[in-house]
Design a protein around this nucleic acid. Structure first.
Lengths: 240, 240
DNA sequence: TCACTTATGTACCGCTCGGTACAAAGCGCT
DNA sequence: AGCGCTTTGTACCGAGCGGTACATAAGTGA
């Protein structure tokens, strides 16, 4: 979930070579294997992306100005365009970084042994993410561009698609659980997935408004009480 | 709930006289009682506000440009500024109109005879509001400005305050219900209010992403299953 | 008719936006 | 050293932003 393919725009714009240059030395322990020619870049691309993520996260796509971005990334404008393309391409790169970094817990959460544990981990991870003092409060997929001017419609839709992908991944996990007998036959994976997605996005709205961790915890616990399991008592901790 | 006082900025800017002029003829059936002097305005202020609401709702506060606003309101720029002040003042006027109009159901919903009926009405009203084809999809209080540039911070905070006010009103209703025995003693009105507020805001995010009425209905029904009432069967329709 | 008051319409303001042209700088290669 | 290639920094572009000056229009009251 939240895994994204290399965007077509990036390929067309020829990012592959650039990505390779910054990725290869990390992936393998070879130093300057093929020795890039030309003046070397003076910044770390991933670090710059993290700074950009921070800005987009706090300001939203449209609220983040190129001036604020370049200042935070400690890069000047032409370098940004040479390395990441225009604002929209940069934002998509940032989205991937978000999915693989701060929001990466979603993937491992769904690997939990039971569906209920998966949902609990999803909620716990969301609470930590949404209120982590090292980042802006809230969720980039929600507050990145719920609304926008005409020019940013593509970005708005992209965020909606990614949110839907998250819900779909959860739904698949719950489907599997029902097939395995982990969920009762009369449980409705689609409804449950929509519901927990809504709860998580609602918690994101709350966090954007300043809600603290305790409050989100209570929301999550209340939400978990819908679990269709003959209404066993709500555990303080997940049973595994 | 969602009721708001006359903002200090409006008072300082001297809107009271203008408001009076457009409100009095509506409130009382007197025609030209005191006969305003000067050239009469060529547009209906409330109608113009409705058009502005539409634009802010779809675009968000920052995404709505003055050009798009004036075009939709069928007003030129100086008339807008003379009648409603700057963009932020206009937005606050629009917020009040939203609270009293499309979102007005929240007030009557809380007057329902039982707490559960109140929450059901709240959810039903939200579903209708969020997916009404006559308006943009979603909730102005959520998508108006979850994030923004530095200049719109006050608007962002104002929206958070109004969301919190809605939750607080629900909480008061649930408090009352517990006092009256309508909710069990061990129910937690604060937790329930936070939870249903989060669900509604999550549904707003879903609606902004294109969710249809059926999907929101399922989310609401699932959410209602947390109701702390010995788990009676969930009704298909609210009992009134 | 003439002042007085208020609304309208045009035309503009300074500023910031996202995006880029261009020359200098820093590297490998020969 | 000199060439080829890429990045860097400055300085700029046109466009759109929110907001306003100013002359004119359209009413009331005398």
């Amino acid at each position: 979930m939240y895994r994204s393919v290399q965007s077509a725009a990036d390929i067309l714009a020829g990012w592959t070579s650039i990505v390779k240059r910054s990725i290869v030395p990390v992936g393998m322990k070879v130093k300057k294997q093929t020795a890039p020619i030309g003046r070397p870049r003076a910044f770390d691309a991933d670090r710059a992306l993290d700074r950009a993520l921070e800005v987009f996260w706090r300001r939203g796509y449209e609220g983040a100005s190129l001036s604020e971005l370049t200042e935070a990334m400690e890069i000047n404008r032409p370098s940004l365009y040479a390395a990441f393309g225009d604002k929209e391409s940069l934002f998509r790169r940032v989205l991937d970084r978000y999915a693989g970094g701060p929001a990466g817990y979603t993937q491992s959460a769904l690997d939990a042994p039971t569906a209920r544990a998966a949902v609990e981990r999803l909620l716990e991870g969301a609470i930590k993410l949404l209120t982590d003092p090292h980042h802006p409060q809230g969720c980039l997929l929600v507050q990145g561009a719920l609304t926008c001017g005409e020019g940013a419609g593509a970005v708005r839709r992209e965020l909606a698609v990614r949110r839907a992908a998250g819900e779909a991944a959860l739904r698949r996990r719950l489907d599997r659980a029902r097939r395995e007998g982990d969920l009762p036959r009369d449980a409705r994976p689609g409804d449950l997935a929509s519901f927990f997605a809504a709860v998580i996005h609602g918690m994101a709205v709350a966090a954007a408004g300043g809600a603290d961790r305790r409050k989100l915890k209570r929301i999550a616990q209340t939400a978990l009480s819908v679990w269709p399991d003959g209404n066993r008592e709500m555990p303080e901790k997940s049973p595994n």
